[in-house]
């Protein structure tokens, strides 16, 4: 029923997550959305599904280094991240080692809530992928370290350390969709004590809970 053979080859570099190095100073732009299911133990009957819009830009640097800038937001939670990695294996099987430095900012003002929080997350990341010709399959693993500060009426209330607050595995499939544009489909298992999109719950649970994330994006 499906006609996957209609296109035998795909545009090279029609990928974003796949860790093979871009040509020097070649870039790609990605725009998409993701939705994360927040555990009811943390958010209870409040909003248990967190959608986020994302825009990313990846740039190929000399010597197989990669630079990626990411912005994502759902108004309440906003994140900016800088990702630097080096592609260590650049064949059909590709592997890159790198890290994210992210800063997030959350704010909400309602009748009973006047809170602002910001946090810093540092996360080493390992990505490997395989070029199946018709699609790229990539798997990325990361660990988060960070802290969060919270304020109300410009007065600091507390600082929370978040050591090894999250382990995540992201599985991404990238394939051409329309002309030279590609489509990215991913699911990410966040196994976390703290996940920045649920900052407003100020959860005290020390358990690692699963925050499954599902997303899609267009690579332009």
């Amino acid at each position: 029923m499906n006609s996957i053979d209609a296109q035998d080859t795909i545009e090279r570099e029609a990928y974003f997550v796949y860790p093979k190095a871009f040509k020097k100073w070649h870039g790609a732009f990605l725009a998409g959305a993701s939705i994360t299911r927040l555990p009811t133990e943390v958010v209870e009957e409040e909003i248990s599904t967190s959608p986020v819009l994302t825009a990313e830009y990846r740039l190929g640097l000399p010597k197989k280094w990669n630079l990626c800038l990411k912005l994502s937001s759902n108004y309440i939670s906003n994140l900016g991240a800088l990702h630097v990695s080096r592609s260590l294996i650049n064949k059909k099987f590709a592997l890159a080692l790198g890290g994210n430095a992210s800063m997030w900012f959350g704010h909400l003002e309602l009748q009973a809530i006047k809170l602002k929080s910001y946090g810093v997350i540092l996360s080493p990341q390992l990505t490997f992928g395989y070029d199946f010709r018709k699609y790229f399959l990539s798997v990325a693993a990361e660990v988060n370290y960070g802290f969060m500060r919270t304020f109300s009426n410009e007065e600091e209330l507390a600082t929370f350390k978040q050591n090894q607050s999250l382990f995540a595995i992201k599985i991404a499939i990238e394939q051409p969709l329309w002309k030279t544009h590609s489509f990215l489909l991913f699911s990410k298992l966040n196994y976390a004590q703290f996940y920045y999109q649920s900052w407003l719950s100020y959860s005290t649970l020390s358990d690692y809970l699963l925050y499954p994330e599902f997303g899609f994006a267009f690579i332009i």
Partner: peptide, 8 residues
């Protein structure tokens, strides 16, 4: 909708 690639 099967647009002729992998993803429908």
């Amino acid at each position: 909708w099967e647009p002729g690639h992998l993803l429908n």
